[in-house]
Simulated scan of single mutants.
Amino acid sequence: MKRFTYILAGLALTFAACSNEEKVTDKAAAMPMPMMMQSFETISLLKTNPKVSLKLAGELLADQETELYAKVNSYVQQIKVDIGSKVTAGQVLVVLEAPEIQAQLATAKSKLKAQEAIYIATKSNYDRMFDADKTEGAIAKDALDQITARKLADEAQVAAAKSVYNELKAMTNYLVIRAPFSGTVTDRNVDLGAYVGPMGKAADLPLLVVQNNQKLRLSLSVPEANTPYLNIGDTIRFKVKSIPQKMYMARISRKSGALDEKLRSEKIEADLMNVNQELKPLMVAETMIPLQARAASFFIPKTALVDANLGVYVIRIENGKTKNIPVAKGRMMPDKLEIFGELMDGDQILLKATEEIEEGTSIKK
């Protein structure tokens, strides 16, 4: 019995000791740990003004291109050129035939001749009466007024007939299609005897397409962020896939001055002379555009920028603690990027910044 009593007493002491150890452990866990200063690598800010290369895909376009259509309903009588033909400004390309217009022109010419004959007779009669009127009382005033009115009416009839004749004659000029500028015929959609016209199925396709390929335009859509760095006169270097071993140059000649509604980019055009005819319109150009600002700015490693839900910022060290500084992004380089914000030369920022680093964290020097 005594032995059993000793065993119960020993168990009670053991449970009491365990309970005390648990209390001590819980109390120790509840006590705050002293804050540990973390060590991070920092960099010093310094303004620079490097040339940043922007890679963009562009398109080569002919300096001049026009589609030639028939202005009147007619038939193709002659085709003097074909695809690939070199033409000069004013050269006859296509001759059309319109019998109805020719007949109308002949009729209008006959009417004009008839009206001119009537007017000549009337004017002669008017001149004789006007001379006779110089003798007082020889010609009645009423007769002179009538011949004057008739002369004016016949003169108006001649002018009207001449207007109709000139209109039809101008339409016959439409039957001869000439090259509007020097260039190359790049497309042909008609054959001899084809019916053509300004409306309907006959006008679905142009008769010919003429391009001036001696001079080309390089067309580019530059993103909004990069538009301030491009100016008229700047040089753009580019390559094309068909001639990858050769580098070409074009000079910026035009800027649209407005952004595209969908792409939010500005259209620019650079001109170049296609001396050897190596380049062709609609080729894709791989461009390298140097972007350089007028003033120096801050460029930082990409690892120093935080782009998170809280915003875009860098982490500056102030009095041994971190502070988030909002910034805006500018030009991009392979390993660096341009930033703008309330920063100064000599500011220390974290080289490897993340959104997990809370603002106010102590940093070892």
Score class of each variant (00 low, 15 high):
residue 1 M to H: 06
residue 3 R to I: 15
residue 4 F to R: 10
residue 6 Y to P: 05
residue 8 L to D: 00
residue 14 T to K: 01
residue 19 S to N: 12
residue 21 E to P: 00
residue 21 E to R: 06
residue 22 E to F: 12
residue 23 K to E: 14
residue 24 V to G: 03
residue 26 D to W: 06
residue 26 D to E: 15
residue 27 K to S: 12
residue 30 A to E: 14
residue 31 M to P: 00
residue 36 M to K: 15
residue 42 T to S: 15
residue 42 T to Y: 11
residue 46 L to E: 15
residue 53 S to Y: 03
residue 53 S to W: 01
residue 53 S to T: 09
residue 58 G to V: 00
residue 63 D to Y: 14
residue 64 Q to W: 04
residue 64 Q to V: 01
residue 64 Q to G: 01
residue 67 E to T: 05
residue 72 V to C: 04
residue 74 S to E: 03
residue 81 V to Y: 10
residue 93 L to Y: 07
residue 104 Q to V: 10
residue 110 S to K: 08
residue 115 Q to E: 13
residue 117 A to T: 13
residue 119 Y to T: 08
residue 122 T to C: 07
residue 133 D to P: 00
residue 135 T to P: 00
residue 139 I to A: 07
residue 141 K to H: 07
residue 141 K to L: 11
residue 149 A to R: 13
residue 150 R to Y: 07
residue 157 Q to H: 04
residue 161 A to G: 06
residue 161 A to V: 04
residue 169 K to C: 06
residue 174 Y to V: 02
residue 176 V to R: 10
residue 177 I to V: 15
residue 179 A to N: 12
residue 181 F to I: 11
residue 185 V to G: 05
residue 187 D to K: 10
residue 189 N to A: 08
residue 194 A to P: 10
residue 203 A to R: 13
residue 204 D to R: 04
residue 208 L to W: 09
residue 209 V to N: 06
residue 212 N to Q: 14
residue 216 L to Y: 09
residue 217 R to P: 01
residue 218 L to F: 11
residue 221 S to F: 12
residue 222 V to E: 00
residue 224 E to N: 11
residue 227 T to N: 02
residue 227 T to Y: 02
residue 229 Y to M: 07
residue 229 Y to G: 07
residue 232 I to P: 03
residue 238 F to N: 02
residue 240 V to R: 09
residue 243 I to L: 14
residue 247 M to N: 06
residue 250 A to K: 01
residue 253 S to M: 11
residue 255 K to E: 12
residue 258 A to F: 13
residue 264 R to T: 01
residue 267 K to D: 03
residue 271 D to R: 01
residue 272 L to Q: 02
residue 274 N to V: 04
residue 277 Q to T: 05
residue 284 V to R: 14
residue 285 A to Q: 03
residue 288 M to G: 00
residue 293 A to K: 13
residue 295 A to Q: 15
residue 300 I to A: 08
residue 303 T to G: 04
residue 311 G to P: 12
residue 313 Y to L: 10
residue 314 V to S: 01
residue 314 V to D: 01
residue 325 I to V: 14
residue 325 I to C: 02
residue 330 G to S: 06
residue 330 G to M: 08
residue 336 K to Q: 11
residue 342 E to P: 00
residue 346 G to A: 07
residue 347 D to V: 01
residue 356 E to W: 05
residue 360 G to H: 09
residue 364 K to S: 13
